[in-house]
Computed example of a mutant assay.
Amino acid sequence: MRPRIGLIPGDPSGIGPELCARLLADEAAATADILLIGDHHVFELGQRQAGIEHPMIKVNAVDGDWDRAQRYALHAMETIAPDEVRVAESTEASGRSTLRVLDQALEFVQAGIIDAIVFAPFNKTSMHMAGIGHSDELHYMAEKLGVTGYVSELNTLDGMWTSRVTSHIALKDVAATIDGERIEEATHLIDRVLRQAGYERPRIAVAALNPHAGDGGNFGREEIDIIEPAVRKLAETQMAVEGPLPSDTVFLRVTRGELDAVVTMYHDQGQIALKLLGFDRGVTVQGGLPVPVTTPAHGTAFDIAGRGEADLGATRAAFALACSMVADRERDAVA
């Protein structure tokens, strides 16, 4: 059966609405049944920005009448007035709209109405203005879905994957936050997600924290005292893992096809590498949630919002990955 993907526009002030319009016009959209979730006028705004016109069939997915639609349908909401949408601006109204639409998508995935969620870029400033109550959307979603275990954003680009031991925290707090348990959890998570994505035995590297992997303790002891013992413990489980490897060279091995994934110690350690290699194709996976949730790895791009210049590449990749993860989950369930 075709995957049922919930597509939400992200922050209405950014490039998300335009990306949704472009995705519906792309051949990739034909691979799934798509439920648009959000304000009708926001999706119309995106169509005007993209210069693309789509007829939208409105349904009430709560009542189960989505089957009336062909290819895609719209579950229309009223979360923000048209005159409250301030293109290229962070606002509390946009943040409230983002969270309300996300809440509805999460309810639909819990009810089995959709199989996965793809969201266009969120704006963290707007969401914090609206009172998200968490450091980021992943931990917000985890609470809404009742997840109490380890969660972390994963990033992927052209078959290369990263996970993070720490994420949205100040760089000065990274070293004190890293411990063996977090390294093990981050590694197990990316191993599990890659297996769900079709990798039989993912090859994983754990990055060092300090320059030259600490240089034998001259530049810090985190590699000796924390990272290496954690990697050794993981290897004893027959996982294909090695490290700690210097972070300034580990991605060279990934690009040569010697590794599938890197467990990084902090946010930018992996993000800089992947965004440099392919900013227009990178995808973020909300790792640790019970259902596939993906998004383009770039942001709301206020500098080009409303100009009709948004590149679909990363959103197309996020959509394709969500569809693939749904298919892999269904195959595993049958097996």
Results as ranks from 00 to 15, higher is better:
N155V: 09
P211S: 13
A61E: 02
Q47E: 09
L289F: 06
G216Q: 04
I227M: 01
V262Y: 00
Y72R: 01
S163I: 05
V250M: 08
S94W: 05
L24H: 02
R203E: 01
F251R: 02
V293M: 05
A305W: 00
I52M: 14
A32Q: 04
G14W: 01
S97Q: 04
F119G: 07
A61S: 11
G95W: 02
N155A: 12
E137H: 14
R100V: 03
I304R: 06
R253D: 15
V293T: 06
A111N: 08
D332A: 15
L321T: 00
R203D: 00
H298E: 07
R192W: 12
G159R: 15
I224P: 00
A305N: 02
A230R: 01
D328I: 11
G16H: 02
L274S: 02
G306S: 07
L234N: 07
L277P: 04
Q104A: 09
T237L: 08
A88L: 08
M160N: 09
A29Y: 01
M77F: 07
T284V: 09
I5F: 11
Q70I: 12
Y266W: 13
L45V: 07
A81I: 06
I272A: 14
G217W: 01
R203H: 03
E143Q: 11
V165E: 04
N218Y: 13
D215G: 06
L19Q: 00
I15T: 03
D268I: 06
P244V: 13
E78L: 12
A69P: 10
E228G: 11
R256E: 15
Q104M: 09
A333Y: 13
G308C: 07
K172Q: 14
H134Q: 14
T156R: 10
R96H: 07
R256C: 13
H212M: 12
G159D: 14
Y150H: 12
H298N: 11
A105E: 09
